[in-house]
């Protein structure tokens, strides 16, 4: 599966990341994620996402059903993409993850301040505690930018199938 470079750039940007999971009984769960990276050298491509250790229900859902949806939104342009995939493995977060997350969180807070004037100090309330990592194989990517075009598939394209 080919991913357009601008889609990879969006997915890996300092953006708001939403995580959707589902329990075995069908109950969906919304939570937040951080620090998404894309491994385009894998086939199919993989995404690696940091999640709060405290997101226990999301983790339980991922372990039980393996299904994950991740939406990434640039808070200044509202450009968004949604990834659908299946969990490949869990990994401990590393010291490098923690450092990257500190930088990314600060960059996101600044972007939100530019977008709507929110004091970055207020966003400190949303800073997650300990993190863990989940790696998922990527199955589909959709345009999720608000508007009538939301839901258009970005990958795999018809040409690539």
């Amino acid at each position: 599966m080919d991913l357009e470079p601008d889609v990879v750039t969006l997915l890996e940007s300092d953006s708001v990341i939403l995580v959707g999971t589902v329990a075995p009984d069908g109950l969906p769960e919304a939570s937040r994620g951080w620090g998404l990276t894309v491994r385009t050298d894998a086939e199919p491509p993989e995404v690696r996402l940091l999640m709060p250790v405290a997101s226990t229900r999301a983790r339980e859902n991922l372990e039980a059903t393996g299904r994950i949806a991740i939406t990434v939104t640039d808070v200044e342009t509202l450009r968004s993409a949604q990834v659908k995939g299946r969990v490949a493995r869990f990994e401990p977060a590393t010291d490098a993850d923690a450092r990257a997350h500190e930088r990314s969180f600060a960059a996101l807070a600044e972007a939100i301040q530019r977008a709507d004037g929110t004091d970055p100090a207020l966003l400190g309330n949303r800073k997650p505690g300990a993190l863990t990592a989940v790696v998922a194989t990527l199955e589909e990517v959709y345009d999720q930018t608000p508007g009538p075009a939301a839901g258009a598939r970005l990958a795999p394209t018809e040409e690539s199938q």
Binding site: L18, V19, G20, T21, V22, G26, L27, P28, E29, A30, T65, R67, I68, A69, I70, T71, T73, S80, Q82, K84, Q144, P146, A150
Partner: peptide
């Protein structure tokens, strides 16, 4: 706000 839903086959969806 944020909304997560799931299809009958268990595929989650999440959006603003």
């Amino acid at each position: 706000a944020i909304i997560a839903t799931a299809s009958a086959d268990g595929t989650p969806n999440i959006t603003h």
